[in-house]
Design a protein around this nucleic acid. Structure first.
Lengths: 224, 224
DNA sequence: ATCGCAATCTTGACGCTGTCAAGATTAGAC
DNA sequence: GTCTAATCTTGACAGCGTCAAGATTGCGAT
């Protein structure tokens, strides 16, 4: 633990971390390179030794977002070995949880402030890794008769589109009180997922068989 | 047609129009109040006579986006009277077309740069109107046995989530070449929609019965 | 008709932003 | 121990959103 050196030692990661924190607290609007630098205790141009420009820092933050999603999904797969439907539902739920617990980070990661993804191969790689995990869950579900047969990547797009669309609309306030008064977010998610599954899936039928969910992110209560 | 007066006459709408154009050409990053003002031929603070701040202009631009979506959906309903499945598929397709033809405007409209929607009642009203149209299509489809029975607004969320999620992932580059090489965007959309419908729906079965589609927005070819 | 007011638009300024140029500091290879 | 490249700082610039003050003008009341 160095006290105060000219060379920071691990400034790059410190900047990414500072950026994610500012994003969480102040939203995408409050994220500036100068504030990130200040938070890391360096001058306002120090970031340029590690990032070509602001976009490049944002790309790094997006990568961390995808890494989080990947790790959440991977954790779900481990936790529900041999239970394809649970992997599907809880994987989707973990995705929603992440989005609701850190909306700004989620938006930056997937609703991307980031143009020209092609310039950031590390970003592409990590997002591929995340998609690959979804495909894996889909394949497991197909083998178990939970999802339709067919090309797993195409099926994965349908599944991911549903979940991602739902959480996007939710974050953008496009799902209104008149609905959120009657149903919890989890029930609505399951209602969406019920369309893609071959087996019967309702909030009631699923909740009967589910254990108390333990998640990294605290449950977000439905706004009244 | 006034030539050049001190008072513009219809500056508010001119600013909205200029904003949408800049958005289309330069993306959300290139949208600044000063540039919008310049494009409308007024000084850099003139917009403040019509909009409280930048957010307020963006809200107006979002409203126009929702209006466009609403009109597209309404046009589809008119064009396919008595054909619920077509209303569903072509409505979704129109949504995708708008998003692909003007990604920045679509993103601003629905992936919203706009926080605190509550401060913009006109925005809320127009987005409600759009959602109401979706609910209408859903009800028609339910009556025809094309969609599952149940609360139409909940079903509408599932449908809209699927379509919106698909187009969002597409715009963010999250649907990869390995898939887009094999399928057109329209086929992938229909594949997603097939999950929500009760009737059989495949790109092949649907395309056999579809007329050559005429749309306001030109078809976007699938990137090779 | 014109007076006066309120709406509209301009000029000027402020602090904040991303980015570039030039120089200071230091870690690590030889 | 010296040299070099990586790292960080200081200073500057234009563009941004926004506020304050003042100029211009359309329009209703008189």
């Amino acid at each position: 633990m160095p006290v105060k050196k000219y060379h920071h030692g691990d400034l790059k990661n410190a900047l990414i971390k500072a950026g994610i924190e500012i994003l969480s607290k102040e939203g995408v609007h409050g994220l500036s390179l100068r504030k990130v630098a200040q938070k890391a205790g360096v001058s306002h141009t120090a970031p340029y030794s590690h990032f070509a420009d602001k976009q490049s820092l944002i790309a790094a933050i997006s990568i961390e977002g995808f890494r989080t999603i990947y790790e959440l999904l991977d954790g779900v797969i481990q936790r529900y070995q041999g239970k394809p439907l649970r992997q599907l539902v809880e994987g989707a739920w973990a995705y929603v949880q992440f989005a609701l617990s850190d909306p700004a980070h989620f938006k930056v990661t997937l609703s991307s402030v980031l143009e020209r993804e092609k310039d950031y191969p590390a970003f592409v790689e990590m997002s591929h890794k995340g998609f690959g995990t979804v495909v894996g869950i889909v394949e497991t579900c197909q083998a178990a008769g939970v999802l339709r047969p067919g090309p797993a990547d195409v099926e994965a797009i349908s599944v991911w589109s549903t979940v991602h669309g739902f959480v996007s609309l939710l974050l953008e306030g496009q799902i209104y009180h008149s609905i959120l008064e009657r149903y919890t977010v989890r029930e609505l998610l399951i209602s969406c997922l019920a369309h893609v599954t071959l087996v019967e899936l309702t909030p009631e039928s699923y909740s009967e068989m589910e254990p108390s969910g333990i998640y990294i992110y605290p449950a977000i209560s439905t706004p009244a």
